[in-house]
Design a protein around this nucleic acid. Sequence first.
RNA 1: GCCAAUUUAGCUCAGUGGUAGAGCAACGGUUUUGUAAACCGUCGGUCGUCGGUUCAAAUCCGACAAUUGGCUCCA
Length: 608
Amino acid sequence: MSEAAKQPVQRKSLEERDRMSDLERLRHSCAHIMATAVLRLWPEAMLDIGPPTDEGFYYDFELPSHRFSPDDFEKIEAEMKKVIKENHVFEKQQKTREEARAFFESKGQKFKVERLADIPEGETISFFQSGEFTDLCAGPHVMRTGNVKAFKLLRVAAAYYRGNEKNQQLQRLYGTAFANKTELEEWLKAQEEAKKRDHRKIGREMELFTFDEDVGPGLPLWMPNGTVLIEELEKLAKESEFAAGYLRVRTPHLAKENLYLTSGHLPHLYAESMFPPIEMYEDRDHADQPKAKYYLKAMNCPHHHKIFAAVPRSYRELPLRLAEYGTCYRYEQSGELMGLMRVRSMQMNDAHIYCGPEQFANEFRAVNELYLKYFKIFGFDKFVMRFSTHDPSKLGQKFVNEPILWKQTEDMVRRVLVESGINFIEVPNEAAFYGPKIDVQLWSVSGREFTIATNQVDFAVPRRFGLVYKTRDNTEATPLCIHRAPLGTHERFIGFLIEHYAGRFPLWMAPEQVRIVPINEDQIEYGQTLTNNLRSLGVRAQLDASGDKFGAKIRNAELARVHTVWVIGPKEQTAGAVAIRRHGAGDLGAKPIDIATQELLEDIRLRR
RNA sequence: GCCAAUUUAGCUCAGUGGUAGAGCAACGGUUUUGUAAACCGUCGGUCGUCGGUUCAAAUCCGACAAUUGGCUCCA
């Protein structure tokens, strides 16, 4: 689902409405048609709103007497077709506020009455009527219901009134509409194609990861092939971070309650997102003592802060960059779990950079460059950087009360972003409690938006932990902290990589880099020698010594998405060569073994 | 957590009241093959779990679990 559909719907200005595309117009009109049909079938339905989305449209209903299910689609669609065939004109009307209220009150449409109040004083209150259906609506619409040529209902979902969990749930019907049947069918086909790239499907096919009911929901088990991906990513991260002056640390998976009381995550802020504590007597012989509470860590920062605090720090040590691929556990709500994209145990490409204010801009710039370096390696081009800032009116509530630091750091971050020419959008009021942040947003093949990486400034928690360093003039100062995770978590990042590459990983990451396929039995021994040589050079090579027919071996290698196949027959053996075949690219001809090997090693070294 | 749907062999799926089936995979044998499927045979399921209705349940009902699509939330 698109971001537009996920966000609580903002009222569009009249100018924005004028710019509404033909497709949005069509879809919005189709939403009216759907509401018309629903009211014919269930006259007692209460209507909320029905806007267009990136994918189609929806309409929210309150209908306690009936639960919508996909079985209703046929009936509703049939009724919609009737409305379309009746070819009603979408007729714009204006009412005064009082007339509008009276109109909806007479029909008992309570949500519409409430929505009326959202329209600013002075703005025209417009209605659209098509047939017997009249809706509060600023438009625009297509001319007639008959203009809707191709539509389909997609799914039924619950949605909280005004997007607020505390409000009642309404029933939402999603649908889509296109200019013609061909475009609708193409879109449906594209949806089917996208499903083939779904990381859950490819993960099963390639034996990358699995979930098991006995282990628990959201707790992935990494199989050997998936573990290769993890270890290659970690190699990349460790090399890059080492070169950038990071120091590696390691911290336990749990900690006592007090750590999170200090950080402020407990007792309230983050308690719901953490697994409930393990409670135990520190001394089994003294059960009269209070029990100690241990929490699985949901983030690594507090542990890293304690490492900072472990020895007296000097300005000479700053910036101090502590890095760890830390494993965290978050008790995500069961309905939010989704394959590898949303899990309960995750390994984070985490690091905390402690620095002085004069070092901040450089550190922040270097972190950004690291992001861009990674995204270039993976060929990510459709990401959006979201710069979340604070709302000064909420200082001391939603945001830590440090007006000067907020302004300073936000200005610095903005300057770095502008100077480095990064495309970013600024989102007010979305910052973390302790500072501004940058999230990198990507879309999964199913169209869902996720944060793939994050980069946050923290000027509150170091103070809570009493972190200080000695400055040049022998005073004590609290460091700023940059919290960064450019490769996000293994789980989500690899989920994206699987979909991004559709399982066809570049050589350096490929779980099986080379498969050696002998044409007949006589080459098996030779193939074994080649395999052993490659493995001694660190190449993930396998020999296909099966009794399959040659064509079947090729097919199996293709289906397994093996990156490179070396075919060896009598000709190659005699010539000291291999015939190279690349996944998806077919037969690339023969090369001498030395050259073929060198090329492999070079591509791996350069992460191609 | 909430709403809806789904759950049958390792995978993809048939089977809507009369005690389970296909293709692929796996395993055994025969075959030794030049760039996407050789042939024969064998194994494999208390139909998600527990309970209920019934002479009889994969099939009907209920609870629970997991998964999926949304909502809320988030790396």
